[in-house]
Write a protein that binds this DNA or RNA. Structure first.
Lengths: 194, 194
DNA sequence: TGAATACGAGACATACCGTGTCGTAATATC
DNA sequence: GATATTACGACACGGTATGTCTCGTATTCA
């Protein structure tokens, strides 16, 4: 099973991802061209096409590392709902600024290229949800979240709100996210006059 | 103030919008080119560029009529919260199928072209919100919605959830929307053991 | 040493864009 | 009517990015 021939150049691979990441931050995915990536990385377009099927795929790989660093879920001793709160606020915070613009670009690219969408769901959405859903289920166990709600629907709502602001380029702040969480937790219905 | 010279051709204008709309439904905004629009409309690209600044602008104009027909808010006698429920379900229903795909395409285009984003917010988001926000304020008045929630944040959440499914190409059904509305109305926090 | 594979450089056809030119058509003013 | 003014369709142009390909060279294993 020993691979035959010249091995893939790690240096080139890393340089390409680095160049991609830099260009994403500078100009966004919309203006990212494989020409620019190749020339900045000191590589040739042939090499890009050899290893990645599309612009979206390169951008995805370059972005995933960054996001995986930036968004880390480190559980504390709180109850599950409190922990979920903290998680949401940290996501909202991460989505402000450059990282959010990159995410919006990727979401846009996903509308033009089904393969990029597949990568996005498979490498970002699904693993994140696989982490968070058990947290919410634990919340139902420990009594902080009422039973009967589908964890996935909670995530559709909360991440939906964040994506919504992202795509409409509405800047968010902590106060906004507090309002979102308040509605999520308490609902909007008037209490039956306790 | 009488206009001088040959007037703009209404026939051509209508044919272009019709062709755009057809192509949007057939192939989506991602694959829409002004070449195809022009040739299907029997017009020339010059004419397109004379009247619209960008592909996004043409798509927007072609889409707005359709959406304005498809989504009409006709108030009934219910209380405001019940009316808002009906509104959300009708939006979610409209966003299934071709119309939703077009919307996702427009949102994607908005990420590449700030002008398209401006048109989107100005001609679609803002007017819709201007209709719905008073409805929610009425809900606070009539006691169906608790005070203290910002109407705009409610909309960020609910439309966010719908956009989210749209952009990730997750098919929705009435049951899903019921779950969303349940969370929105009642929240996810466990009741204090009434 | 040779087979196999990756590499950078660059050519090539294709597609779409945005602009410009041209001859012609339609309308208002004189 | 004649003329100025504007819109129209057809088409050409340069620019940019794509995806595929070929070439000579470099690197690794057998």
């Amino acid at each position: 099973m020993a691979p035959v021939g010249r091995p893939r150049s790690d240096a080139s691979h890393a340089a390409i991802l680095k160049a991609t990441y830099e260009l994403l931050r500078e100009e966004g995915l919309a203006r990212l061209t494989l020409d620019k990536v190749a020339s900045r990385a000191g590589a040739s377009r042939s090499t890009l096409y050899r290893w990645w099927p599309s612009r979206g795929a390169i951008a995805m790989e370059a972005t995933l590392d960054m996001l995986n660093q930036e968004l880390s879920l480190e559980p504390k001793g709180d109850n599950a709902l409190a922990e979920f709160r903290r998680l949401l606020k940290s996501v909202a915070r991460a989505m402000r600024g450059g990282t959010g613009r990159i995410m919006a670009g990727i979401l846009a690219e996903c509308q033009r290229d089904p393969e990029t969408l597949r990568l996005f769901k498979e490498n970002l959405v699904a693993p994140r949800r696989a982490e968070v859903v058990p947290l919410l289920e634990r919340g139902i166990q420990d009594g902080s979240i009422r039973p009967g709600v589908a964890p996935h629907t909670i995530l559709d709502l909360t991440f939906g709100a964040i994506y919504h602001q992202l795509l409409l380029h509405v800047p968010t702040d902590d106060a906004w996210m507090d309002g979102v969480i308040d509605i999520l937790v308490n609902g909007i219905a008037a209490k039956p006059a306790a």
